[in-house]
């Protein structure tokens, strides 16, 4: 078991214990409707966390995803209102997100500025620029076929869910099998060794930021079409949520390692806490404390487990 799950172990055990507890304390949590709603609410978080995993594996970080999310949503809304065919919206989101991601990646990999500083700067700058440009106003009066891509609620939900699942599985497969994705691990593990092995490490880092930007853009559009208009303040705190999901999933922040299955577990764990607390009828005032506590317990569990394992001295 431990071998199979490797570093996701701690997150997996916490999630399993939590789910088992819920099965006794609030069995109605497992209704189909509830699971569907939770899954849909976390589609965008999963996409972003997937990109974030790759960025963290390459030993960088991106804390600007929340701001990118807001910008892509508003731009998507404006484009739809401006008459862009609805089926092109996801591609527009990907394009805008990639461009913003490329700005981060360019500064990190070609100017060699530390990623936490670059994305801290872009996080604040893009957010405030958006606030300023929109004055906080929502994008309203969207065409009728904006919501659910005009497919209706049931079909729209299915499209969202399957698109995310396919994309996640594709990246999961690629991360194990494609040389391009293996070079992400190589670069994150030891950039100099990777360079000597013929990998263009700068390009790899750049590509990781473009990818997280693209996934954020797509996530933003997929989230936006669940509603009939786009708010200007979306995605606040999304960066912390997705980073937390990645690290709870066992990806070390130092790079070079980490698996997307772990990230899926992390997203699931953090995604069910909120609704589960309502099901357990706990006071909302303690919610943040419980969330922080669960992250810490997972981390502690992981630390103790890896201690007990008596790793070889060199690790």
């Amino acid at each position: 078991m431990r071998k199979l799950l490797q570093r996701e172990f701690a997150g997996f055990i916490t999630l399993a214990l939590f789910l088992i507890y819920l099965a006794f304390a609030a069995p109605s949590f497992y209704s189909l409707g509830n699971l569907r709603d939770i899954a849909l609410a976390n589609v965008s978080v999963l996409l972003i966390s997937t990109g974030m995993t790759l960025v963290i594996v390459v030993a960088e970080i991106d804390i600007s995803v929340g701001s990118l999310f807001a910008i892509c949503g508003v731009c998507g809304g404006l484009l739809a209102r401006g008459g862009l065919p609805i089926w092109m919206l996801p591609f527009a989101g990907i394009a805008i997100g990639s461009a913003l991601g490329a700005a981060n990646g360019g500064l990190v990999s070609f100017v060699k500025a530390p990623s936490i500083v670059v994305t801290l700067a872009t996080m604040v700058a893009w957010r405030e620029a958006l606030n300023w440009a929109t004055g906080g106003a929502w994008v309203e009066n969207l065409p009728a076929n904006f919501q659910w891509f005009g497919l209706g609620q049931a079909a729209g939900e299915a499209v969202l869910f399957s698109a995310t699942a396919v994309l996640f599985l594709a990246i999961l497969w690629a991360s194990h099998n494609l040389p391009a994705f293996r070079s992400i691990y190589a670069t994150g593990s030891d950039a100099e060794a990777a360079r000597l092995a013929g990998i263009n490490t700068k390009l790899v880092v750049f590509a990781a930021f473009v990818l997280v930007g693209a996934l954020t853009g797509l996530a933003s559009v997929l989230n936006a079409v669940r509603f009939s208009d786009v708010p200007a303040n979306a995605g606040i705190g999304l960066e912390l949520q997705s980073i937390a999901a990645v690290v709870v999933g066992g990806t070390p922040i130092t790079g070079g390692r980490g698996r997307l299955m772990g990230t899926l577990i992390g997203v699931a764990l953090l995604g069910i806490i909120g609704p589960a607390l309502t099901y357990l009828q706990l006071s909302p005032y303690w919610e943040k404390a419980i969330q922080g506590g669960i992250i810490l317990v997972t981390v502690l569990f992981d630390a103790l487990a890896s201690r007990a394992e008596k790793r070889p001295a060199l690790a």
């Binding site: 912390l240 303690w286 969330q291 922080g292």
Partner: peptide, 11 residues
Amino acid sequence: VTLGTYSLFRG
């Protein structure tokens, strides 16, 4: 760690 305590303390 501090991401966790960030939520914990405020919570």
